[in-house]
Nucleic acid binder design. Structure first.
Length: 666
DNA sequence: ATAGGGTTAG
């Protein structure tokens, strides 16, 4: 191996900036350390990052390289790679010579961050210290360069290394895979002489990741030896392709399973949208002898969130605390998301404010939750917090901010954040950002601006975006634009009933009954089927589902009786059924019945019958809440003195004392 | 005494 030539850094990461600044101040040279007070890896196991930082600060000078090595390794083990590099910097500042174990450990942290500057510096030091023939060090360099997106540097090191073994080959192959050079990876694999299981697994995983499951299957069949990792790679490959049935077959077939196998198969159910099955499998896992870990709960919590299973979600939270599952950023964000989506804003907030560490991902989750609940001020506060702590916002952060603006009708703020993301943070707005802006402008009555924004989008506007404009036309009674948009939408997706219904409602509102009837006929001709409203409610004996007009519930009679009583009482309080939005060809009495049997009203009646006075009622709906139900729920919350929380397909409504948290803007 | 590099799940 020869000395390195100067190489430009293509992208400077924050870790790089820090590393470059500190390395500039370093002097090269070597003084042997003393022999007292040396740290051992065993004495550092179980130490928290804070304790390790204190140890580093109080590390006597001189100390032997082994003490620094132990700290670097311990930091890396707890995921504190920047601190690992800090320990290394101190070592260099004190001119402690690295031993053969120092640089591989440093390079692992450089790969994890990643920090190209550190990799380059370590490489230079290796050459200077004559350690550059050390095989583990060369392998670590290859890994670090690949993680930094420089397979070319890695390949140069690899090609000049003598006595390469299976591990160095595997590192280079995995590096090529990581960088997307699949042919180079396969070529190297074909050329290596002594392959082990890991070599096969790397290539197997490559085919799984690029979705070539036939090649993966072929490889899996011809492998001379298989281990758990091979099976797990196959499971996750099929899970990603949506074939959860085969993923499950593999899982049942494999000779032994570990926590990764369970997580892969649980994740496959989650990704395919089978949320109750996800939870079933989690229960099976607990009956097995494999202990769930962080990754497990990160698959289970979103499943609870989707189902609105707050009870189980709370149980998982308690389980995390009891079983000492690490509250890393993923777990914290999953908890915030679960509480938020289950309508428990207080606990979502609590988890976020108690988090020991917050990054852009976690903050964006919190903003998204506040957006769902229409808490614009708190969402903006999180954003201000991010900026004060130097947490760089990403596209998801701005999506949440724009949603919060759209839900609150805050046009000025929306425009501010939309411009800020482009100008200040150099983030290109994606489809979802345009969607929020169209929603925001449209609802606020700026229909022309919203329309212009769609026409000026750099990508093909998806039906969703047109649909928000259409719904804005409905709110503001712009029949002319509505017709244009609706017919465009019907052309795009003739099977979707929502577009016909929306335009028919707009016609009815403008007293154009014949046109409304025409839309109904057109809907039938094109074979579009109305999506049935469905609401669920969790009471003490489980989750109950109601469809619009549902007659299947065992307590059906009491529920409908209750609804009739409610209608009489609430009418005295000012409830006026909004019959103009009913499409069915029935008389006005029948229309009232149709409205009264909307799924969220059924769920509400059931909740009132079965739960104690004072209990909050939580309802989850698959569609948007209609105007009539919204009015009904407001009056019911007052008359029955109950807090009712409804999650519809895009946000939360907190009904209390006769008003709704959305301020009738949704 | 004692320290190293590669593969699978979010």
């Amino acid at each position: 191996m020869t000395s390195i030539s100067p190489l430009p850094s293509p992208t400077v990461t924050p870790a790089d900036q820090w590393a470059q600044k500190t390395f500039q101040t370093l002097k090269f040279g070597g003084v042997a350390g003393g022999r007292d007070h040396r740290l051992r890896p065993s004495s550092l196991s179980g130490a928290t990052t804070d304790e390790l930082c204190r140890l580093l600060r109080s590390l006597p000078d001189p100390s032997p390289p082994s003490s620094y090595n132990a700290l670097i390794k311990a930091f890396a083990l707890s995921g504190a790679h920047l601190d690992a590099l800090r320990a290394y910097t101190l070592m260099r500042a004190r001119s402690v010579p690295p031993d053969p174990f120092t640089l591989p450990a440093v390079l692992r942290s450089a790969a994890a961050l990643p920090s190209l500057a550190t990799a380059l510096e370590a490489h230079g030091l290796a050459v200077k210290s004559g350690l550059d023939a050390h095989l583990p060090l060369c392998t670590a360099l290859v890994g670090a360069y690949c993680s930094c997106g420089h397979p070319d540097f890695a390949r140069r090191v690899f090609d000049r290394t003598d006595g390469r073994d299976a591990i160095s080959y595997n590192t280079m192959i995995a590096g090529h895979v990581k960088c997307g050079d699949f042919e180079l990876a396969r070529d190297l694999f074909d050329r290596m002489r002594v392959r082990n299981v890991s070599s096969w697994n790397t290539i197997l995983d490559m085919y799984c990741k690029i979705g070539d499951l036939r090649a993966a299957r072929r490889l899996f069949d011809e492998m001379p030896e298989r281990n758990i990792v091979s099976w797990n790679a196959m499971i996750s490959g099929h899970a990603k392709a949506g074939d959860f049935v085969f993923a499950r077959e593999l899982f049942d077939l494999m000779p032994e399973r570990n926590v990764v196998s369970w997580n892969a198969v649980i994740g496959s159910y989650f990704h395919c949208g089978f949320f109750s099955e996800t939870l079933d499998l989690f229960r099976m896992m607990q009956a097995s002898d494999i202990k769930p870990n962080e990754v497990t709960v990160v698959a289970v919590l979103p499943a609870c969130a989707h189902l609105g299973a707050l009870d189980l979600g709370q149980w998982v939270h308690a389980y995390i605390q009891k079983q000492r599952i690490k509250m890393d950023l993923y777990v914290t964000a999953a908890l915030v998301d679960m509480y938020g989506r289950c309508g428990n804003l207080e606990d979502a907030r609590k988890v976020f404010y108690h988090a020991v560490k917050r990054d852009a991902f976690l903050c964006s989750t919190m903003i998204e939750v506040f957006a769902m609940h229409g808490r614009s001020q708190e969402a903006f506060q999180v954003f201000d917090f991010m900026r004060s702590k130097g947490i760089w916002p990403n596209a998801v952060t701005f999506k949440g901010l724009l949603r919060v603006c759209a839900h609150g009708g805050l046009v000025e703020f929306g425009l501010k954040y939309f411009n800020m993301m482009r100008e200040q943070f150099k983030l290109m707005p994606k489809v979802e950002h345009f969607g929020c802006m169209v929603d925001l402008l449209g609802r606020a009555g700026h229909l022309e601006e919203a329309h212009d924004l769609i026409l000026g989008m750099p990508m093909e506007p998806p039906p969703m975006v047109w649909a928000s404009l259409l719904s804005a036309c409905k709110i503001h009674g712009n029949v002319k634009l509505a017709e244009e948009v609706a017919f465009h939408l019907i052309e795009l997706e003739p099977q979707s009933c929502a577009n016909y219904v929306m335009l028919a409602n707009i016609y009815s509102k403008a007293n154009r009954w014949e046109d409304a009837a025409k839309m109904r006929r057109m809907m039938k001709e094109k074979g579009a089927v109305k999506k049935l409203g469905c609401s669920s409610i969790e009471v003490s004996n489980g989750v109950h589902e109601f469809f619009a007009g549902d007659q299947h519930h065992p307590h059906c009679r009491q529920i409908y009786q209750m609804l009739d009583h409610m209608a009489i009482r609430l009418k005295r309080k000012g409830y006026v059924p909004c019959t103009s939005s009913v499409l069915h060809d029935v008389d006005s009495n029948g229309r009232e019945q149709v409205l009264l049997h909307h799924s969220e009203k059924l769920a509400l009646a059931y909740g009132l019958i079965t739960t104690e006075k004072g209990t909050t009622i939580r309802i989850f709906k698959n569609l948007r809440v209609c105007n009539d139900c919204h009015q009904f729920l407001k009056l019911a919350s007052q008359h029955y003195d109950r807090q009712v929380i409804v999650r519809d397909c895009n946000r939360f409504h907190h009904f209390v004392g006769g008003s709704c948290s959305c301020s009738d803007y949704w």
